[in-house]
Simulated assay, not measured.
Amino acid sequence: MMSIILVIWGFLLISLMAIGGYFMFRKFLKRLPKEDGKSIMDWEEHYLEETRHKWKDEEKEFLEELVSPVPELFRDVARQRIASKIGELSINKQENIIQRSTIIEGYIIATPKRDHKFLRKKLKEKSIDTTPYEPLFQQSKDNYDFDWREKYQK
């Protein structure tokens, strides 16, 4: 009986360490500098700092509503990633303040396709038409990583 408990405990301990190591390794990879000398996380922080003054309270609340389905443990990371993509779009569009349409576009681009159903549901609750965003919904997140700017311009 005791040996079974030890085996189960050992398996549980190794499994939890492997899961934690996986997430730590992913964060480490995001911190590695790319060709331009900045990492993914450096660029996220850059876009957040550059656009911090552009956010109005209503837009911050709207973003909070959109990220509310994300489990609380991961919500801060998701919020930062999405807000940085929104900031990048805002800079590219040369907006003076963050627009609701930019928030929706940034959310679509920054999140995996499987999370789009939550966005669609939230937009439907708010009576916001998703028709202008359908081309973005149709693309997968993988396509955004390399050439999302070119596709967005079209």
Rank of each mutant, 00 (worst) to 15 (best):
W148R: 08
T51I: 04
Q153V: 13
S101W: 01
F62C: 06
L13K: 08
K154W: 10
E150D: 12
E72Q: 05
I8K: 12
F28L: 14
E58H: 11
Y144L: 01
I86N: 01
Q99N: 12
Q80C: 02
I40H: 01
G20K: 03
Q139A: 09
E125A: 03
K121T: 03
L123H: 09
A18N: 12
D115P: 00
R79K: 12
Y107S: 07
F146W: 14
E45R: 02
L48A: 05
S101Y: 01
F11C: 12
K122S: 13
F23M: 06
L16A: 12
I4K: 11
L29D: 05
L63Q: 09
L66G: 04
P71R: 04
P71E: 10
N143G: 12
I109E: 04
G10N: 10
F74L: 10
L73W: 09
R52S: 15
E134S: 01
K113I: 01
L73N: 08
N96P: 01
T51W: 01
P69G: 03
V77N: 07
L12N: 14
L73H: 05
I98S: 04
I19W: 06
R52L: 14
S140P: 00
F25M: 13
E59K: 14
E72V: 01
L29G: 00
E125P: 03
E72I: 05
E150V: 09
M41R: 05
K122T: 09
E59T: 10
L16W: 14
E59R: 14
Q138D: 15
M1L: 09
E49K: 12
K124C: 08
Q94D: 15
L13F: 14
K27L: 15
Y107H: 06
K30C: 13
L12Y: 13
E59H: 14
